[in-house]
Each structure stands twice: as C-alpha cells, then as structure tokens.
C-alpha cells in the first residue's frame, strides 16, 4: 500500500498538471486559499484523484480537506480501509 508521503508526491504531480502556474506545492498548500480553485475545479480534481488511486472520496469528508496533506490523509485512510476489507 502507498505511504502518506508517496500519496502527497502523486497529488502534487496531479495538481501541478492542473495549475502549472503555481510553482511551489507541498503538503501545506491550500487547495482553495493558495491554488484559487473554485468548487467546480475542486470536484474535477477529486474525480481525477479518485481514478488515479482507485478510491471513491465521499462528499462528507470534503469539508475537512483544506490542504494537499489533508487530501492525502483521507486517501491514505480510504486505501487502508479497502485493504482491511479484502
């Protein structure tokens, strides 16, 4: 299973492709505050991330997701729960 840091790295690659003008991305980068993504772009990003990690991210968890690190943590937990369910 992927580590938290590996997930952060992959998320940064995906987000960089969507917002090439933003140079400095790390786990503390805020999706809305720093990247200026509106709600529609956040949803598009989530769909892309879901495909990449083969997870479904529930809408319920999104209010807790502010930074790239928050999103990585949610994906990490989802991957863990999928593994334990198998």
């Amino acid at each position: 299973m992927k580590t938290y840091q590996e997930i952060v790295g992959e998320l940064i690659a995906v987000i960089h492709a969507l917002t090439p003008e933003v140079k400095a991305l790390d786990e503390n980068t805020e999706l809305i505050g720093n990247l200026g993504l509106d709600s529609m772009k956040v949803m598009n990003l989530i769909q892309e991330v879901e495909d990449r990690f083969d997870v479904s991210i529930p809408l319920n968890v999104l209010p807790d997701v502010r930074t790239i690190g928050d999103l990585a943590l949610k994906i990490h937990l989802l991957l863990q729960s999928h593994d334990s369910a198998r």
Binding site: Q47, V55, I57, L59
Partner: peptide
C-alpha cells in the same frame, strides 16, 4: 455520499466495485 460522473455507467460500475 459519493458522486459518479454524470450519466457515466462505467464510472458508476467502478464505484460499486470499490
């Protein structure tokens, strides 16, 4: 609550599988 892509049967199937 999970969304699937609008009218996308394959996306729905993927999410049911997960």
């Amino acid at each position: 609550v999970i969304r699937f892509r609008h009218n996308d049967v394959e996306d729905l199937k993927k999410r049911l599988r997960r």
